[in-house]
Lab assay of single mutants.
Amino acid sequence: KRYRAVYDYSAADEDEVSFQDGDTIVNVQQIDDGWMYGTVERTGDTGMLPANYVEAI
């Protein structure tokens, strides 16, 4: 699945990823209600991200 960031996010922990509004997130997997795991296409960084900061595309 592919998602697009709708807000900027700065990683708060080493297992999270930072991204900017408009970034595409690929290979996304749902972890639980609030978190997903995926790769930021622009940077190649992979990690956890907050589900409410992205939307499906």
Rank of each mutant, 00 (worst) to 15 (best):
V26S: 08
Q30L: 13
R42M: 04
Q20E: 09
K1N: 12
M48A: 07
V40N: 09
A56K: 10
T43R: 01
I57F: 09
A56Y: 11
E55D: 07
Y53A: 14
G44M: 06
E55A: 09
D32R: 14
V40E: 02
V54H: 01
D13I: 10
M48G: 04
G38A: 05
Q20D: 07
D8P: 13
V17H: 00
G44A: 05
Y37C: 12
G47I: 03
R42N: 05
D8Y: 07
Y53S: 11
D45S: 10
N27W: 08
L49N: 00
G34V: 13
V54T: 05
V26Q: 06
Q20Y: 12
Y53D: 01
E16D: 05
S18R: 02
R4V: 10
R42I: 06
T24M: 13
Y7W: 11
N52M: 12
A5E: 04
T24L: 14
T39V: 07
I57P: 03
I25K: 01
A5Q: 02
V6P: 00
Q29I: 15
D8I: 05
Y3N: 03
D8V: 06
V28P: 05
Q29S: 13
I25D: 00
E16N: 05
E16G: 10
W35H: 05
A5G: 05
A51C: 10
E55S: 09
M48D: 02
L49Q: 01
V6D: 04
M48Y: 14
R42V: 04
M48P: 01
G44N: 07
N27R: 09
E55V: 14
E16P: 00
S18H: 03
Q29V: 15
N52W: 10
A5V: 05
V54R: 00
N52R: 14
V6A: 07
L49K: 00
G34R: 14
T46P: 03
A56T: 09
Y37Q: 08
N27K: 08
G22K: 05
T43E: 02
Y37F: 13
Q20P: 00
E41F: 06
P50N: 07
G38M: 00
G44W: 05
T24D: 07
R42F: 04
Y53N: 05
P50T: 02
G34L: 14
G38Y: 00
V54F: 07
D23E: 04
I57K: 05
D45T: 08
Y53L: 12
F19R: 01
D8R: 07
R4E: 05
Q29K: 13
A12D: 08
D45V: 10
Y7E: 11
G34N: 15
G47E: 01
A51G: 08
I31A: 09
G47S: 00
M48W: 15
